[in-house]
Amino acid sequence: MTDIIEMAKQQLVDGGYSVKTTDDNDGPVLLFENDAVLGFVLCFPDAGIMLERWKEISQRIFTCEQFALRRAESKAWNAYLVLLTSTPGDYGENIMLGGIEEDLVGTRKIARAGVADAGDVCSALLPLLAIRNAPRLNALDMSAEIRLRTTELPRDLVEGFLSSASEGTLIQLLEEDK
Score class of each variant (00 low, 15 high):
Thr2Trp: 07
Ile4Asp: 01
Glu6Lys: 14
Gln10Trp: 05
Gln11Thr: 08
Val13Met: 14
Val13Ser: 05
Gly15Leu: 02
Tyr17Val: 07
Tyr17Phe: 15
Thr21Ala: 11
Val29Cys: 07
Val29Ile: 06
Phe40Met: 08
Val41Gly: 03
Ala47Asp: 05
Ile49Lys: 13
Ile49Ala: 07
Glu52Lys: 15
Glu52Asp: 09
Glu52Ala: 12
Arg53Lys: 14
Trp54Met: 06
Trp54Phe: 11
Gln59Met: 13
Arg60Ala: 15
Gln66Arg: 13
Ala68Asp: 13
Leu69Lys: 03
Leu69Glu: 05
Arg71Pro: 01
Ala72Tyr: 07
Glu73Ser: 12
Ser74His: 10
Trp77Met: 10
Tyr80Cys: 03
Val82Gly: 04
Leu83Ser: 04
Leu84Gln: 02
Tyr91Met: 04
Glu93Lys: 07
Ile95Val: 14
Leu97Trp: 08
Gly99Leu: 04
Glu101Trp: 01
Glu102Ala: 02
Leu104Val: 12
Thr107His: 11
Thr107Gly: 00
Lys109Val: 12
Arg112Ile: 10
Ala116Ser: 11
Ala116Tyr: 06
Asp117Thr: 12
Asp120Ile: 01
Leu126Ala: 13
Asn133Thr: 07
Ser143Phe: 11
Ser143Gly: 05
Ser143Met: 03
Ala144Trp: 05
Ile146Asp: 02
Leu148Arg: 12
Thr151Asp: 03
Leu153Cys: 03
Arg155Gln: 13
Asp156Gly: 00
Asp156Val: 11
Phe161Ile: 13
Ala165Glu: 15
Ala165Trp: 00
Ile171Met: 11
Ile171Thr: 08
Leu173Gly: 01
Leu174His: 06
Asp177His: 12
Asp177Met: 09
Lys178Pro: 02
